[in-house]
Structures are given as C-alpha cells and as structure tokens.
Design a protein around this nucleic acid. Structure first.
Lengths: 135, 135
DNA sequence: TTCTATGCAAACGATTTGCAGGGAG
DNA sequence: CTCCCTGCAAATCGTTTGCATAGAA
C-alpha cells in the first residue's frame, strides 16, 4: 500500500486505506467506518473522517458529492480522476470516462471565466432501468 | 403572484413565494426562512421546508444541490430550468445557459443508458477570480 | 364542516470540534 | 523527546417527523 508521504502511518489510516482498496469503490464515510471496524475494532468515527480528509488533501483519495445523497470516497487509482453519474432513484453511482466533459469545460472556461472541476460532483439523473420518477 | 394550483394559499406560503420572487435567486432554506421571518414573524422553520418541498413538487420552485454547500432554491421563471455552476472558493452560484449540457446528455443517453437531469446539481469549479485552491 | 398546512418540540443523520493522552518518527 | 494522530464526548448544521390544532376552501 502507499507509503507515508510525509505523513504518519498509523493503524486507523492503514485500515481506511485497506478498506478503500478492497471496497467496491464509492463508499460513504459510514461505510468506510463499518469496514474499518470489521477489520480492527476501536477505531473512532471521528478518526475515519479525519483520515479521509487528510488523504483527500494528499490526493490519495477523491471524494465526490452526490446530490441528495451525501459524500462518497474512493482511492485515486493510477492518477485518474474519472467522472461519475448518480441515479437519483436507485442511488447507484457509475463511473464515466474522464474526458466526457472536456468540451463543456472548455466552453465554460472560454465563455464564462469558470474553471470546471469535472470530478467533484456526480452528474444527476436516472439510469434507464429506473426511468422517470421525480424529486 | 402565482395562484393556488389545487393547493391552498396560506400566509407562510405567500411569504415564501414573495421572498423567492424578490430574493437574489439561489437562496438556501435558511436564507428563505430569514427573509420570511423578516416579513412576517412566527413562521416556523419546518413550514418553510415543507412549503419549499411542496412548491418543488408543483414545479414552481427548483432546488439544486451544491457540492459541499447544501441545497438552494429559486423560482422557476417562465418555465426555464437553467443550469448552474458553483465556485467552491467564494461560494457563488452563477446561472448557465440551459443547453450547455445537451451534447453530454445525448452522449450519456446513447452510450451509457443514463438519462441526465442537467439542472439538478450545480457544476463545481472555481471562477477565475478565485483561481486555484483545492478541496 | 372537512381536511390540509402549521407550529412546536424532539428526533435525526452526517460531520466537526475541544481536549487530554498515546504512539509514530 | 516531540508533535501528530487518536479516542471520546459533546456540539453543530441541515433537515425531518409525530402530534394536536388553526384555518383555507
């Protein structure tokens, strides 16, 4: 697993990283806590949050905001910050190719003086399986 | 102001609509409550939330989720559900043309069986004034 | 009169903070 | 030995819910 990048490697941190590495991607903070607890009891909720924040700052994990749904975390695999779509009906988060918004990003930059960070929020909608429902 | 659409027109509802109509767009629920209270005291927080939800269901107001920032509400002016960009540094929400994501929506529909709802979440990034900072 | 919307208080879920002690480097 | 990271408890923020009642239609 990734080695200390100027930061200390502790039990809780190792556990969080392991859970993220094994997990099915896109875990909520609470889900990470569950996984951590299963692997090594006694780790406190607050430590998980603090660890996730620290790892985010280091660029080792990425967090995305999912509409009504809260925040999810996952490892940044080989430097790729891919995009996400969130189905507001079934709640699934699916990955999208990282270049999907390139055109939009350029348009925003050119016409609206806005620097898009495409990976930071999940696009919202419904997967076809969940067709039409509102909110 | 818009008349009852099968719903009852009450004091709190009138106040919420008035605040949204006069406000600078993109108000948080709490900001709406403040405005409502200033105009007519005694309206309860819960009523504002319930009213905003009811008006959302009627399509009279639109709510958007703003990354780390919570939920904001605004009137749907002449049926236009425009898009939004949120600067994560200064927090400003700016409107964007509603057709900006048309191409992306079509690509998602065709290649990913995903029906995009472009107006439901704000795109995240930084306005040029706030250049580069992270989170 | 009827039945919806309101006020109130309390519950809630997610996340954060102050503080003192423990352990990594 | 020093300072960062942790556990704990409590606070905070945004939002929701159960209940009895006021009031719109």
């Amino acid at each position: 697993m990734l080695r200390a990048r100027g930061e200390r490697m502790t039990g809780p941190r190792r556990a969080v990283l392991t859970v993220l590495a094994e997990g099915d991607e896109h875990l909520s903070a609470e889900a990470v806590l569950d996984g951590v607890t299963r692997r090594e009891s006694g780790v406190h909720r607050a430590s998980v949050y603090r660890t996730l924040e620290a790892l985010s700052d280091l660029g080792i994990v990425q967090h995305i905001h999912v509409g009504h749904g809260g925040t999810t975390y996952h490892l940044v695999r080989n430097g790729t910050r891919h995009l996400h779509a969130h189905c507001r009906v079934c709640g699934v988060v699916r990955d999208l190719p990282s270049d999907l918004l390139d055109g939009v990003a350029e348009a925003l930059s050119r016409n609206h003086q806005f620097l898009l960070d495409p990976g930071h929020v999940a696009l919202s909608g419904t997967c076809l399986g969940c067709r039409r429902t509102d909110s």
